[in-house]
Structures are given as structure tokens and as C-alpha cells.
Design a binder for these strands. Structure first.
Length: 214
DNA sequence: CGTGAGATCATC
DNA sequence: ATGATCTCACGA
């Protein structure tokens, strides 16, 4: 049973609020857990964030910007919180991150999984070139439970690297969704990161069906 | 310039 | 469990 159903009935229109840079310009672990239940709005799709991971460059061997290492790929992480960091992974997929904290302190939150609440057919077409009613149960189950999938259904690629999270093109809403339990866990697929492997910097909504790795 | 690895996904 | 697929970062 999903915490959120695929309908917008749980959203209370009176409580809508676009998150601004004050939200992102805070400690990354707080932002990562506070993002759960918030809604990404972009390109005809709205989706609730249900799983995130924090990456804190200065101290984190799992982060592209470990020890403030700056490269062409990760330079966006050094900007002030409130922009998107997108990069190509495994030659085929993209990952969406929200940059956090102040300028020069390279941190971000990876959006690992979402639950679509509006524009469901649009999202399905981008993932499978079919509408929702044509999907198999397996395709429905795998619609949005992974970082590469999030980028597909929101039409995101490296072209959006560095873009603001506070424009009509893309913004984050606080719809007042709360009342769920948050699970803290080890991050996924960073086996190379030595001691940072064991940091509990992955956050997800307990009981949600759209979690990437059980 | 060569090389290896990677914050993944779909299929076997 | 494995193949797909390619950019980036690094070292020679």
C-alpha cells in the first residue's frame, strides 16, 4: 500500500508553497530529510520525493567533490544552494541532485525515487512510450523507483545542469505532506567510498512502495 | 592519448 | 548475475 496514491487528492491546494534558496542553503542532511514529501514540478509532471541521499563534499569519499575537489563535471556543486546538479552515469543515465549549503561548500542531495501524483500519462510515455493504462504491473512498479528513472520522467539531462530550482521550468512545492516515518540507511552503490559507505545518509519514507533498493 | 571506473537500468 | 554504453578524470 502506497503512502501516496497516484492521484492529486492528497494535495491540499491551500498549502502550496514554492521552496526558495533559504530551504536549500542549510545543512545537507537536514535538506535531504526535509525534501521527503515535497513535490517536484516540471514539464507537466508533479511527483512527491520519497527517497534521497546526501553528499557532502568536504568530508565524503562518496561525493564527486570530496575534499573540495573541483572538476568540470561537478563545478555546479560549488554554487549556492538552490540549483540542479545533473550528470551522466554509466554512460546512459542521468542523476538529478539539488545543490545545498553556501557557495564554495560543495554538497548536494540526490533524488533517488519519487511518486508521480500528476501528469501520470506524460511520465509513462517518457519512460515506456505508452500510457499508464497500457503498462504491465511490472512497469508500473518500476516507473519511478530510481535516480535514472526520475530524470527520464522529468525530461532531465545534462542540458539542465546548473538550472535554478525556483522558476516555472522547475520548482519544488511544499504541499504540507507529513505524518510519515523516515528511514535512515546506508547509501546505494558507493562501495568504493571506504568509511563513507557506512554513513546513514540515505533517507526514505517508511512503507512507500517506490523505494529503489529494499 | 589510453585506461578504468561509475550516486543505473533492463533483461537474463 | 550480467551486459549496455560513454564521459570524465587521471596518469603516462
Amino acid at each position: 500500500m502506497n503512502v501516496f496514491t497516484c492521484s492529486n487528492s492528497i494535495l491540499n491546494p491551500k498549502e502550496k508553497l514554492m521552496l526558495d534558496s533559504n530551504f536549500f542553503n542549510r545543512p545537507t542532511l537536514e535538506v535531504a530529510s526535509d525534501l521527503l514529501g515535497k513535490v517536484i514540478v516540471r514539464n507537466g509532471v508533479k511527483a512527491v520525493i520519497v527517497e534521497t541521499e546526501a553528499y557532502i563534499g568536504p568530508v565524503d569519499k562518496g561525493c564527486h567533490a570530496y575534499h573540495f575537489k573541483k572538476t568540470k563535471r561537478n563545478e555546479v556543486m560549488f554554487s549556492c544552494g538552490g540549483v540542479a546538479y545533473l550528470y551522466l552515469i554509466y554512460g546512459m543515465y542521468y542523476c538529478l541532485n539539488f545543490v545545498t549549503e553556501g557557495e564554495g561548500f560543495p554538497c548536494a542531495v540526490l533524488i533517488r525515487s519519487v511518486e508521480v501524483v500528476e501528469g501520470l500519462d506524460t511520465a509513462c510515455r517518457r519512460r515506456y512510450k505508452k500510457e499508464y493504462s497500457q503498462l504491465s504491473s511490472r512497469q508500473i512498479r518500476n516507473l519511478s523507483n530510481g535516480p535514472g528513472k526520475v530524470c527520464m520522467l522529468f525530461n532531465l539531462s545534462s542540458a539542465q545542469n546548473g538550472m535554478s530550482l525556483q522558476t516555472d521550468d522547475m520548482y519544488i512545492e511544499d504541499n504540507g505532506i507529513s505524518g510519515f516515518d523516515i528511514v535512515k540507511a546506508k547509501r546505494i552503490n558507493i562501495d568504493y567510498a571506504e568509511e563513507a559507505r557506512d554513513f546513514l545518509w540515505r533517507f526514505y519514507i517508511k512503507g512507500n512502495q517506490n523505494i529503489s533498493v529494499k
